[in-house]
Design a protein around this nucleic acid. Structure first.
Lengths: 195, 195
DNA sequence: GTCTATATTCTGATAGAC
DNA sequence: GTCTATCAGAATATAGAC
């Protein structure tokens, strides 16, 4: 979209972040140039540097904002009914990630492209998110041999939904949530037993 | 490592692939230059083109070879005892992926950077691998609401091991295999039941 | 705040000597 | 088969006009 010279700081900033999010998710951070982002926004490349000091910071802030939003949404569980909390966590994780496919993709794929300090900060936020699930597993009488492993296994399983789920496919998101909750429930449920 | 002029085709080819595998896994396909690969191998950049027509083909062949090797190793299960086959699959997937961390990383992260025809070929191979697990789930009397979803959930869960497992850590690989098998067994086991 | 123009470095790939 | 040299273009980031 062509643009004329003028003052648009109030809307250009969000548009830069949105364009970067979209392009980084599609093609990868390293494969996307500042020129491509500028073209998507409809400005010249120099204008981008009013909104980010450099490309690396742009990536980092997208990832950080996503992780903070995820974390803020995740810590609202009541923590008094572990089974209900676990179910809520499962449904929440699937829904939240479904609503933000680009941010999820970047948060999992572009860790390699973060400079060490930025990487450490994102990893710390990820650890906090894992701790939410871990504390739910700790609070309940779940049949879990190793809480840390169960945490990582469940999160990996749930996050995997975003690699194949498409709205309008064979299953609704609700049906997917239902089935994953059933699988998680059985995985950590008290019945265990022999086969 | 500096090299002198001469004929080394018998060893340079594998060294090019090994260097590309390593660098692509560390930094991402788009972030790695042919010059970096050449430096890692110890040749000048022009020499690389004796072994690949271009960078894209180098990536594609690494991914294709990995998927073919994975598939060949996976179809050896007997298919007559579903529960044993499922356990073997779980242990196999974890061990195989643990032995090839760079190839696994690339196979899951660099799909975006494949040209359409190459992407289709890799996706087909991935589908065949998923079909191996799906047929095991089909052969047994497993308590699975949707076989396709269970297949994808299990593979995502197992593949996630490679994001955190490190030899010499708190748990041995055997212990990890054991715990994942226990989780998968409960997830698809016949006991199901209420909570 | 955005533009145009530019500095500097790097990119994938090729040509031809040895 | 590897080297050196090179092409043509693209990369990030900056400077200064408006």
């Amino acid at each position: 979209m062509a643009r004329t010279t003028g003052s648009h700081s109030d809307i250009t900033g969000p548009r830069v972040r949105a364009a970067a999010l979209r392009l980084f998710a599609r093609h990868g951070f390293a494969a996307v140039s500042m020129r491509q982002i500028a073209m998507e926004v409809g400005v010249q490349v120099g204008a981008l540097y009013n909104y980010t000091p450099d490309k690396q910071t742009l990536l980092f802030e997208l990832m950080r904002d996503h992780m903070i939003e995820l974390l803020r949404a995740a810590v609202t569980f009541p923590r008094d009914m572990p089974l209900a909390d676990l179910e809520n966590f499962v449904r929440f994780h699937i829904a939240f990630h479904h609503d933000r496919p680009d941010a999820v993709f970047i948060a999992y794929m572009e860790l390699r492209n973060l400079e060490p300090d930025n990487f450490a900060e994102i990893e710390a936020l990820r650890g906090q998110y894992e701790a939410v699930l871990e504390s739910i597993l700790e609070a309940g009488r779940f049949n879990v041999a190793d809480r840390k492993i169960a945490t990582l296994a469940i999160i990996a399983m749930l996050t995997g939904v975003s690699t194949w789920f498409r709205t309008g496919g064979r299953l609704s998101l609700g049906a997917v949530q239902e089935q994953y909750w059933e699988m998680v429930r059985r995985m950590v449920g008290p019945e265990g037993g022999s086969v």
